[in-house]
Design a binder for these strands. Structure first.
Lengths: 339, 339
DNA sequence: ATGAAAGCGCTAACAA
DNA sequence: TTGTTAGCGCTTTCAT
């Protein structure tokens, strides 16, 4: 059995409370430097390791944060988690990660489990809109931050990329290359990103003076490669004149590649493709994907900072952080074919 | 404030101890079914959620496992973590994840932090050999499982892929295609996988009757894309006759692609390349990578099962689980060029 | 079958 | 500055 605070106190010839104060930086000021030193030495000698469980029971703080993601194997979330972790660990917190598999029930359970384990704050990177879990969390005053999602109507902290700017940059790039018939493979309308990117696409098409009927939108059931493939098949079948596709994320764009291969079309000669997110490896596919780079690590880091802020000052009012994005032009976009 | 066990007890008109027994499946037998029902209803009514912190303080068990990985953003580890999580959650445990950045100091700190938080068991997916952290853990009788690493000389649980078989399958594939001058880009000799794969390469070269001097080995400083590129440059400069490369992991193989592009060589026409691990997206690069498929999700799932086994029966003796691997032939391998 | 009492290891009033 | 006391919420003897 490892040494407890009482053991340390006894060894240093002081009371447990004094030992506690001596060992805790915040209360160290209340104790005589000499005794503090004795206590520290005794602790060292006994190999004392404080028991955070006992501390938590007393203080109602666990020094841990919960992070809820739809799927840790999605390359999008690894850097987000990494960002959260780095900031949290630096502040003395650790992070409990929970997967939801995009299932509302599992999300509810995981959040409940995290709350039962008394995490001090929560970061949600699950993208569903109108999520009842969130309202409960807000009502219960649990410090939370949303990642990769905006909820303009809710008093809540959030971190997201400037999706509108990303879509605009992508569209203008295609427009400058000469494309006039551009399709959008939209993300699920149950996600905040899907909705925002789609709406911006429509707006910007108008801004550029393109005809809505030349720029079809097909919605993917989920952000997966196969959905991208299915959507592009629909587009090509129904709008053969399209010369470029703007996909709502990289996975959907990669799905497009499969359809091109299967139909003997080449990218970018026959069709230009643009993705969104710049996940790892899309620079290694062929052709290297032109996409919108999003700073996912910073999403996580910023989200963690926002939770910690709330922990420091519970009265602080919510803010939304919008991180800049930038188009990365690679090999999947070029001028449209001559007709 | 949420309801405590005392509140439930009071509401049901019983003592806290009775409420505790009624709510705990293991002790439910000691209590009158009628009172048990009353307690359960009261708990339901008050929305009682047990406080695991208080329970842990008393029982010395936290129902949580620690998972230590070198880098969560490495696509190799996401499925491992996912496997751990799925099994752990199904058994009522949750998982604390810690990154080490491949830094020994950080590994020590993270393990210490996890232990301080009283995790019931640990899973280490960090690959360094002769790791002092491990001996300490063994000495302290902490239930642990090593993942993707074998330590034949240590009495310890481990889960790994059959690396030797993977290397053999890859080499025979190349040999059958007609390659006789095959280079190996080895992983760091500080990792168990690096050592085993390299040794098997040497052995198998002999088995196949190939000359050691025709089959150079270059060791990568780490398992990164850039290291793969650097190693291949060395190989091509010093052994221009080589017609195939077997890389110790996929990232190193992808690094080879970059060198081929930069030298105007084509894969597989000029040089065949084989990877190891079959991480996501290596089927999307160009040419699609021939590689050894490893069941990483199962690594995690099996590791979690092994920890849980130890928790159930602390006296159980260590075992090593070796999971099968299989070569996936894609587009990066072909017959050697005619000379 | 249930209640009483103690205590896990720590911290925070309060008192001295 | 230090000690005393109490208690966080739960489980577990021991007694009834």
């Amino acid at each position: 059995m490892s040494a407890t605070l009482r053991d340390v106190a006894a060894a240093a010839g002081v009371h447990a409370a004094t030992a506690s104060r001596a060992l805790n930086p915040e209360t160290l000021g209340m104790v005589n430097p000499a005794t503090a030193k004795r206590v520290r030495e005794a602790a060292e000698r006994l190999g004392y390791v404080p028991n955070p469980i006992a501390r938590s029971l007393k203080t109602n703080r666990t020094l841990s944060l919960g992070a809820v993601v739809p799927d840790i194997t999605n390359p999008l979330f690894a850097p987000i988690i990494r960002g959260i972790e780095d900031v949290a660990v630096a502040a003395g917190y650790n992070v409990l990660i929970a997967n939801t598999d995009n299932e509302p029930d599992r999300e509810r359970d995981q959040v409940a489990s995290l709350r039962a384990r008394q995490v001090d704050g929560l970061i949600l990177a699950t993208a569903r809109i109108e999520d009842p879990v969130i309202s409960t969390l807000i009502a219960d005053k649990v410090p939370i931050v949303l990642v990769n999602r905006v909820e303009p109507d809710l008093p809540i902290f959030s971190v997201a990329g400037d999706d509108a700017s990303g879509i605009r940059q992508a569209l203008r790039h295609l427009h400058e290359l000469g494309h006039r018939r551009i399709a959008h493979i939209a993300g699920p309308s149950s996600t905040s990103t899907g909705v925002v990117r789609r709406r911006t696409f429509q707006l910007e098409i108008g801004e550029l003076g393109l005809a809505a009927e030349d720029c079809p939108i097909v919605e993917a059931a989920s952000y997966q490669i196969e959905d991208g493939a299915g959507c592009l098949r629909t587009v090509l079948d129904e709008h053969p004149g399209v010369t470029a596709v703007l996909a709502a994320n990289d996975l959907l764009a990669i799905g497009c590649y499969e359809v091109l291969a299967e139909r003997g079309l080449s990218c970018p000669a026959d069709l230009s493709v643009v993705g969104f997110n710049d996940i790892p490896f899309v620079d290694k596919v062929w052709p290297p994907l032109t996409t919108v780079h999003v700073r996912h690590y910073d999403f996580g880091a910023e989200a963690a900072r926002l939770v910690l802020e709330q922990l420091r000052d519970p009265a602080i009012s919510p803010k939304s952080v919008l991180l800049s994005v930038s188009l990365v032009v690679r090999g999947s976009t070029a001028a449209p074919p001559d007709r």
